[in-house]
Design a protein around this nucleic acid. Structure first.
Length: 489
RNA sequence: CGGGGUGUAGCGCAGUCCGGUUAGCGCGCCUGCUUUGGGAGCAGGAGGUCCCGAGUUCGAAUCUCGGCACCCCGACCA
């Protein structure tokens, strides 16, 4: 019997078991890397499909750059190299040969590369090195490109989806004439992410800026969307960076501007990763398994037949045909699970574990009463409905579930968001978990001190500013606005 | 990279302290029959380099030494 650890017993264990038992992913033989299984990948494909459409609607095109980046590229932007040096996978050789003792193969020492390659942890450097050749005048701008790719960051400690050594993501890299235009782009993409997180994933997020110490390596400004997980920890779900002219200067990318003068190009980059699947799980799921918002669920409706004899199964099969047809006509994905080797009870539990939003059960009782039993995954509520307009009922129900799941997550976040003005209360709230809105004097030193004392970091300076006079909790210095503190993944 | 823990069937574990028949148990898997409205029952069956290497011994899953891997907790990070 596949039961999972309760969240209240061990949240981390619950998470890992859920990922594995729901069939989303599993650890691999390669340290820190995961195997994304079909069910998990189907969720990623839904994420990709939605975002890809939004990127194109906002004027971007897809392209692809090499996975290997010459080592020298990294040294060109000082902060950037510092940010990624500690977790770089390096390619040093290009050939193997049979080992002298006849057992297996060894790296051929003769085949050492002149210059090592870094397996990309992110692609700014190779892309900006390329943009140099693409840009001569303001007429070549803007360049609006996105890449779907895998990247590698050699992390010390990994967790399925949340942090793996290799992960899948998209990275947008744009080049602009002016600072204002680049900033507007970075903000626009943040808004794309926010809308996507809330509407598709049903995960409420706070959008805003990072504090200087939390910025992307090489960025002037980093925007972020931050979610609050069920254990009270924050999760960064997407970032969008205004890179200023840093990479243009590092890679000497200039253009002739409208005044006929040479100027460095302005840049942005922005990305979200397979980590989003972790956010999805930790925001909505419960002790029975996954709870998937209908818009992201690979399978939205499952029909489970309940029968004694095979003739009964045949009758049910016929009985549900119009339902299946009706649902498909509305673009709803549906599966009729007529597997004879599993009992209905087993199937109920299995589809709850997998988070299928709606389950329809059909047995002799229903056929007699011209009805079906419809159960929703989020509330586990079951109701009987007439068979005639099931498609419409389910269609509405899916919308309802999507909204309810979002609302529930929002309620949770609001219940765990605190306005705090004293150091004692701050420590206590951080310990309990949640977002803590507090005043901050704006210095790196205070931020670092708070982190040291409480493990809390500034997650975000919200776009919708909470402007008011106040005093920093620790130093008592004046502050103009509240910022969001939390412990984070 | 520091502290702790664990490696025995596909998965979860017992056995290890105190060496000794043929290495067990639960789940899963296969076959058959009966079942099917919340993880079915019975019967039969398949499945093991006991993490790797060396040593001690008549004899090692068990003791000794060395190695490797993974997990958890910290520090670092999407």
């Amino acid at each position: 019997m596949a039961t999972i650890t309760k969240r209240s017993e061990d949240y981390s264990k619950w998470y890992q078991e859920l990922v594995i038992k729901a069939g989303l992913a599993e650890p691999s033989e390669v340290r820190g890397c995961m195997i994304i299984k079909p069910y998990g990948f189907a969720i990623w494909e839904k994420i990709q499909a939605y975002l890809d459409r939004r990127f194109k609607e906002t004027g971007h095109q897809n392209a692809y750059f090499p996975i290997f980046i010459p080592k020298s590229f990294f040294s060109k932007e000082a902060e950037h190299v510092e940010g990624f040096a500690k977790e770089a996978a390096v390619v040093t050789h290009y050939r193997l040969k049979n080992s002298p003792d006849g057992k297996g193969v060894i790296v051929d020492p003769e085949a050492k590369l002149e210059e090592e390659y870094i397996v990309r942890p992110t692609s700014e450097t190779i892309i900006w090195n390329t943009y140099r050749n693409w840009i001569q005048s303001y007429r070549d701008l803007p360049i609006l490109i996105n890449q779907w790719a895998n990247v590698v960051r050699w992390e010390m400690r990994t967790r399925l989806f949340l942090r793996t050594s290799e992960f899948l993501w998209q990275e947008g890299h744009t080049a602009h004439e002016t600072a204002d235009e680049a900033l507007a782009e970075a903000r626009q993409m943040l808004e794309v992410y926010r809308e996507f997180a809330e509407n598709l994933l049903a995960v409420p997020v706070i959008a805003g800026s990072k504090s200087p110490s939390e910025r992307f390596a090489g960025a002037i400004e980093t925007f972020t969307i931050e979610g609050l997980m069920q254990d009270g920890k924050a999760l960064q779900m997407g970032t969008s960076h205004f890179l200023g002219q840093n990479f243009a200067k590092a890679f000497d990318v200039k253009f002739l501007n409208r005044d006929g003068k040479q100027e460095y190009v302005w840049a942005t980059s922005w990305g979200v990763s397979t980590r989003l699947i972790g956010a999805l799980i930790m925001t909505h799921s419960d002790d029975n398994g996954l709870v998937l918002p209908p818009k992201i669920a690979p399978l939205q409706v499952v029909i489970v037949p309940i029968y004694k004899k095979t003739e009964q199964l045949e009758q049910i099969t016929e009985y549900v045909q119009p339902i299946i047809k009706g649902l498909r006509a509305k673009g709803i994905t549906v599966k009729f699970d007529n597997d004879n080797n599993k009992t209905p009870g087993w199937k109920f539990n299995e589809y709850e574990l997998k988070g299928v939003p709606v389950r329809i059960a059909v047995g002799p009782r229903d056929m007699k009463g011209r009805s079906v039993e419809i159960a929703r995954r989020d509330t586990l509520e079951k109701k009987t409905y007439p068979v005639d307009n099931v498609a419409e009922i389910v269609d509405n129900l899916l919308v309802q579930i999507q909204n309810d799941i979002f609302q529930r997550a929002l309620d949770y976040r609001q219940k765990h968001t605190y306005y705090v003005d004293s150091w004692e209360e701050f420590k206590q709230r951080i310990e309990e978990g949640g977002f803590v809105l507090a005043h901050w004097d704006g210095t790196d030193e205070t931020e670092a001190r708070i982190k040291e004392l409480t493990k809390a970091t500034i997650r975000v300076l919200p776009v919708e500013e909470i402007k008011e006079q106040g005093k920093d909790l620790l130093t008592g210095k004046l502050s103009e606005r509240r910022v969001v503190f939390a412990r984070a993944y």
